[in-house]
Design a protein around this nucleic acid. Structure first.
Lengths: 189, 189
DNA sequence: TTGATAATTCGACGGTTGTCTAATTAGATA
DNA sequence: TATCTAATTAGACAACCGTCGAATTATCAA
């Protein structure tokens, strides 16, 4: 929880990356564009972009061999807003709350006993479930089902919920875990 | 401008400091309290607090030999809000705007030709003026006047404006420069 | 004044990470 | 296929910075 915030700050806490964000605020840029504007070598820019992408702050669109990078203003807004949520800063208290919920719904063997009906509790459980997936790895639908079924038999419902909360993404039958900065708190909008 | 934001992110981009902020969100703490809670030595905590204080995020209140540290939620809100102001990120453009204003009002010898009447331009000039003062240094009123008069004869008006914009603080006839995170954009509220 | 406690400053050590060059991958074109 | 370009990956080096123990400062109490 506060972990997400820490990674966000780390990503922004470097002059080169902050300048990249500033440049992308004006519009799409290629790696070469950025390298020229910042007076850095391309590998260095790639490195910084990878960090920003890992936080979901930057998205990419391929066009031939060049890749156009853009700023995700939504993610930026969501993350910076989180700074002011007392629970985010008050850290331990919030995390303890989550743990209490999990202790209630997850048995000693790490299996989900029942899917909570209350929205807030269900979100806590979904976050726990989403963290079972490795970031930056692609899963087939059957792999997703297998991973979920290790924890609860109703993989269809849970898979759908994970996608609905923007914790997993799906395209052409392939799934992957989205950065936590994208995860929705409340549920599908 | 974007410099302030960078320093803010740097200040927050470390687990120890983020945890300190979290602890202070609950209330005042002494250095010892924090050291115990974080499992760090006191010099380390002092070091982190100095960084947070430099950004105006933490304030101190002395009571005997112990110093009670508190979170300045206003500064935190002001800074994190700034992340979303397009001008803050679009950096160069905003800075260039400032420079254009300054070129109009400051002569080649670094003297202010005339105090701008328009609110936005006056703020730009006041920021330029405030940066003539060293952070973390105390000035007498005559020192303040002398510094201002190197740039413009009406030190009384400008001194009052600097205080009104929370760029300088005054107490018992002593002045000092406040962290940029405190500076007001518009003018006295 | 002396002693005790809270905090800060100083100097050093070690780990992290930003940057580079060189090598590799992926896509477009001939 | 061969070649060219855009970008990423790998590995090495250097600078920065978080942490600590030791020394110093400041405040209160005898």
């Amino acid at each position: 929880m506060t972990e997400v915030l820490l990674e966000f700050f780390k990503a922004m806490a470097h002059e080169s990356r902050l300048r990249i964000v500033g440049l992308l605020a004006h519009g799409e840029r290629s790696v070469q564009d950025l390298a020229a504007a910042l007076d850095l070598k391309e590998p260095t820019v790639s490195h910084h972009l990878a960090i920003l992408k890992a936080q979901g702050l930057v998205t990419v669109r391929a066009e031939g061999t060049t890749r156009w990078h853009a700023l995700d203003l939504g993610a930026l807004e969501r993350l910076s807003r989180r700074v002011l949520e007392p629970e985010a800063l008050a850290g331990p208290t919030a995390a303890e709350g989550d743990e209490r919920v999990l202790r209630g719904f997850v048995d000693a063997g790490g299996r989900l006993k029942v899917i909570p009906a209350a929205r807030r509790k269900r979100t806590v459980v979904l976050r726990w479930l989403a963290r079972a997936f490795e970031p930056d790895r692609r899963y087939s639908e059957s792999e997703v089902n297998a991973l979920i079924q290790q924890r609860h038999p109703d993989s269809a419902t849970l898979r759908r919920e994970l996608v609905g909360h923007d914790m997993l993404a799906r395209e052409a039958g392939v799934y992957w875990r989205l950065p936590e900065s994208r995860w929705l708190e409340g549920g599908p909008a």
